[in-house]
Design a protein around this nucleic acid. Sequence first.
DNA 1: TATGAATGAGGGTTCATTCAT
DNA 2: AATGAATGAACCCTCATTCAT
Lengths: 207, 207, 207, 207
Amino acid sequence: MKKNGSDLKKEKQSAIFEAALKVIKEKGFHRARIADIAEEAGISYGLVYHYYKNKDDLCNDILNQWWGRLYELLETIRNREDEFQDKLRALILYFLDTYQQKPDLMNIFITQISRSSDNLTKPRLDFFKTFLSLTEAILNQGQKKGVLRSDFESYYLTYIFLGALDTFLSVMVLGDQKIKNDAHKDKIAETILEVFLNGAKAGKREA
Amino acid sequence: MKKNGSDLKKEKQSAIFEAALKVIKEKGFHRARIADIAEEAGISYGLVYHYYKNKDDLCNDILNQWWGRLYELLETIRNREDEFQDKLRALILYFLDTYQQKPDLMNIFITQISRSSDNLTKPRLDFFKTFLSLTEAILNQGQKKGVLRSDFESYYLTYIFLGALDTFLSVMVLGDQKIKNDAHKDKIAETILEVFLNGAKAGKREA
Amino acid sequence: MKKNGSDLKKEKQSAIFEAALKVIKEKGFHRARIADIAEEAGISYGLVYHYYKNKDDLCNDILNQWWGRLYELLETIRNREDEFQDKLRALILYFLDTYQQKPDLMNIFITQISRSSDNLTKPRLDFFKTFLSLTEAILNQGQKKGVLRSDFESYYLTYIFLGALDTFLSVMVLGDQKIKNDAHKDKIAETILEVFLNGAKAGKREA
Amino acid sequence: MKKNGSDLKKEKQSAIFEAALKVIKEKGFHRARIADIAEEAGISYGLVYHYYKNKDDLCNDILNQWWGRLYELLETIRNREDEFQDKLRALILYFLDTYQQKPDLMNIFITQISRSSDNLTKPRLDFFKTFLSLTEAILNQGQKKGVLRSDFESYYLTYIFLGALDTFLSVMVLGDQKIKNDAHKDKIAETILEVFLNGAKAGKREA
DNA sequence: TATGAATGAGGGTTCATTCAT
DNA sequence: AATGAATGAACCCTCATTCAT
């Protein structure tokens, strides 16, 4: 079955996208040269500019895809009729899955997007704030249902939850640790959930 | 009392250091130009090279100072005979104090150092790992004393604790939020501690 | 009636030619991109290379057409048995007519061809010199007939005549002024003729 | 006598300026590369950017100098109490003198500035229009004094006068003709003046 | 004939670093 | 110690031209 032009175009663009992920992961946004990306993608220099207006456009595509998917997921989770804890678990697993399937992208999120990067411009900051808000909306559901304590504002709980998740991911990403199998993945998820919900203090849990 | 040459040298170097903090905070490591730093410091830019071998040297100075102080603190905390919770509180307050007194440095830590930055070279990664280890050593004390639960490896607890702290700081730094007063600072510290120790779940706390 | 292949070819080539005129007028030779011209002509830009060897070839086509027609006219005028003044008038009107009918071409002549353009290569300079020579030949007829004064070399008179004409056109072209009607056109022609022939000094004319 | 820093700075900038004139004359604004200019000036590539913000800035400097001097001259001429014909002569001689002393600049005026150049942006067009206006103001003086005929608008006379002058210069510049001596220069000036004032028609002059 | 993807040389600009004074 | 002129490698982006389909 022959692919039509549009498919081919998308494929090539996708190749550039993936190459960019890899190079940016290795060098960071700044040091990633268009020449590197082109070489990684196995195409000529100028062709990158056939698919992307400029370097910024390419970087934004990465950001938009990342945040776009994440926002979508958060909306989905919020609207689901799940048990509250399953919502948190779903979010954690999304990150872990992404790390498994697109480690470069996850790496970039951790090292380039989540905080820093010299590119911390206003719109990029807004991405981050939106992420916090959407997550907070979910935690707020937990408070309303009486699952989460309400003696703290929901954003406090949000920071702690996301911080825990983020640091787990950071350690894995920066240490280049692999997720061995699904059991391992579940273990991590359960740990984060358990400590977040029940705390780190000894001897407080029933049974 | 006349200052001697060495003092003068240190003063000037310090001026460059502070200028670098400010410029790097505003532009990031990459976009921070030697010319900017010199201008901010009120000196000619050739002079920067009398005090620092090159840009990397200057950046490393910042990193070394940051991590050096932090390591020192962690060692101190570990060796203190405090109650365990006071150790954690001391660590949290150190970050909050630093944010109050040297917001630029804190900003750089959050946005440039803590994870990423394009400059994520091996030695810089090691800094981060050492930080995790030293903190883990303290949390491990908590487990040994029976204050912290032991059904998780100490590094799991470390990630959650540091993640919570880090995200609180990130939000403040990125949102340019000020710490209003000591009460506010204590509130934040207590929140982190309380949720870390007792968890986010509702109705589980005695009294 | 079906057009044959050659006609079609000429039509398409003509479309490219006209598109080139428009784009070059707007952007100049240098900034005019093949892609712009193709888009203006409503064809794919690879196709331009079927009709023209390269960009230079296209530009030369424009130059050749312009100069070719002009030389032809000058030859015609020279060989005509008109009154001398009618010859000059015919030349002036040719330019004004061209400006009316092909303003883009006229614009390019004024802004790109007549003098300079970065493309001032030897062959292009020769075009210009030939133009001067052919015009001079006509003015020389005027001197021989005793209509024009002979106390100056004919090329001096040529420069003044063409300079006057050229500057009139320049102002119109650069100011994007339209020729309102035939009376307006005649007025301009007569002004140039009158001042060229009788001078700008006051009170010297009979009657 | 030692030169101070500012003098040296100006000297170097001037060297770049002159080098730019030469290169632009040879290649045109577009084809003139910063590398060429630097080489011509005998300095390194980057140094050009020490003195000029960018290529445009350098080009504008040339334009501003050219037009600035010309405007100044036109103001001076207008305000002088000279005989009217001496005013026109002064203007012609200014151009001829400039051609003698700064042939590169004159060349650029003719081939790049006066009309064309792809760089025909709004502000550059305005330069040209101002030039026309200032000249027209002088010719208008001639009409008011009764030296020039008033049956044509002053701008018509302006176009013819400037056109004549411009074309003389063009021919010299494009033909790379030298002005042999002062007598030659005067001859040219008188020719332009004579034909402009008394016309090209034979047998109309007194005596 | 027609398309537009693909190539890569060319050139502008930045900026860390060196160096003469 | 101090200045800032000077250097040139690095890298982004453009666009004429080629080529596979």
